[in-house]
């Protein structure tokens, strides 16, 4: 029996008066990769940004319903605590351009003013870079600027930065859509390996990618959750007609 780390209950989202998420109910299982799939504009980004409360900065966004992290309502918690427990990786790699690779990895501690001993700092940096499969590539250049890395490396650096906070959940919003195929393959491999440490929710446009690396898949369509199932089951025998049409490329 796998434990449910995150429960989304009767969740609605609006921008101004337009409803973009309709009555979403969804439970995410711990130490799995859950892919969120669906055509452009169906609300994937809106849903995953709701999970770490990034909408707090969008003045015209309004959320209704509950999201429970280990049975505690995120919207009753301090948003800052929520974001430390639920990390996020964005579509475009966004390392801090003024910081070295080392400082980028521990940026979450530095910027928050959390004091660490030198030993802890070094351990966290090495551990996070190892988990994001970057340690060997950058261990000799830790004090160089992160913005000189390739796009794929920058994205892995961003993953390392998120992992350094030891989050319970990692949200990834189309993390490979700005990368070339080789870098994409590298990140996909990484995501598969990271399952042991962290629960991941991955937004993707790419059906093949969802099939390769996710255990569960959510299909969203026009703001509705159409289907949620084990990935291999959904890919082979979708229950809903709309899922089938999406998977066979009828729209998207």
């Amino acid at each position: 029996m796998e434990s449910k780390i995150l429960k989304i209950k009767d969740f609605n989202a609006y921008y101004d008066d337009a409803q973009v998420l309709k009555d979403i109910n969804l439970s995410i299982l711990k130490n799995n990769v859950t892919a969120i799939m669906g055509p452009s504009g169906c609300g994937k980004t809106t849903l995953i940004r709701a999970i770490n409360r990034m909408h707090d900065f969008t003045p015209n966004a309004r959320m209704e319903g509950e999201i429970l992290l280990n049975n505690e309502d995120l919207y009753q918690m301090e948003p800052i605590i929520v974001r430390r427990k639920i990390g996020m990786v964005f579509q475009r790699p966004n390392p801090f351009p003024t910081m070295s690779i080392f400082d980028n990895v521990i940026a979450g501690y530095k910027l928050n003013g959390i004091k660490l001993s030198k030993e802890d700092r070094n351990n966290i940096v090495e551990d996070s870079l190892r988990k994001s499969a970057m340690w060997d590539e950058v261990k000799d250049n830790l004090h160089k600027k992160g913005s000189f890395l390739s796009g794929g490396q920058q994205q892995r650096l961003c993953i390392a930065r998120a992992l350094a906070m030891k989050p319970e959940i990692l949200l990834l919003d189309e993390p490979t859509s700005a990368l070339d195929p080789k870098a994409t393959a590298h990140i996909e491999e990484l995501i598969s390996e990271l399952k042991d440490y962290v629960t991941m929710i991955l937004v993707t446009h790419n059906i093949a990618q969802a099939a390769r690396i996710s255990n569960y898949t959510v299909f969203l369509y026009l703001g509705e959750l159409v289907e949620y199932d084990k990935t291999n089951k959904m890919m082979t025998t979708p229950k809903d007609k709309r899922t089938e049409e999406y998977l066979t490329g009828k729209f998207g």
Partner: peptide
Amino acid sequence: IPLHLKEASMALGVPYYKTILKVVMPAGL
């Protein structure tokens, strides 16, 4: 200064004012 930089900081749980002081302003120094 691109929004995604600010979001990177916010997503690490950094409060708004610290994000401005420690991420946005240094980038625009």
